[in-house]
Amino acid sequence: MGRQLKFNIFRYNPEDSASVPHMETFRLEETEAMTLFIALNRIREEQDPSLMFDFMCRAGICGQCAMLINGRPDLACHTKTKKLPDDITVLPMPVFKLIGDLSVDTGTWFRDMNTKVESWIHSDKVLDPAAQEERMDNVLADEIYELERCIECGCCVAACGKANMIPEKFMGAAAFNRIGRFMLDPRDQRTENEYFEVVGTDDGIFGCLGLLGCEDVCPKKLPLQDQLGMLRRKLGFSAVQHIFGKVFSSKK
């Protein structure tokens, strides 16, 4: 006999005017190697077919299933019930638009973010695919990959106090990481000024309060703290230099 698990699940369907946000309790017997993917699907198929939640890869690589599990944003599919107490509270992630119950719209948010930070290689080189590729040091390739591993799950955003305070505005750690990725990439010809234009504001890197919720929850363990620090230092000091430079030149 497995443990009797008690799931307290947030319920609300914004499409239904009669629906009010509330918590609902479901009970389930724990089975071996049970994950929240298995548990939530069983609840939907056996107890309440209207329960809304999202899964895709169920292997911890697509970022579709992020939710608050006992208060902490994490991927539900790689969360084993064994690691949780008998009483499990699941809430949808804040900051993102609620679709219903545990389902939130991370897709639209991330597309906007990608557009905002112009998340693509900016280059005016004309590509000749028949020619040999440009060389790159393997160490650099690995470094870029390390930052490219973000799965856009949104955990870092949901865990960020600043993003919770100004949800429509603050860009979030995933965006800063993405900028860091392109700054590292020699194929992107953007200048520091252009990066500055994109993230050098209080809704961008200078609004980050250093809360490190992002760093602590990222399921892919991206080096967010180090990226954030690098970005602020680089852009912050370049601004100082720039302004002092202006002061000096105007005195002349």
């Binding site: 500055f196 234009e197 050098g200 504001t201 912050g236 100082v240 720039h242």
Partner: peptide, 9 residues
């Protein structure tokens, strides 16, 4: 770029 926010920070 506008650098005010950076300077304030």
């Amino acid at each position: 770029p506008v650098r005010n926010d950076a300077m304030y920070d």
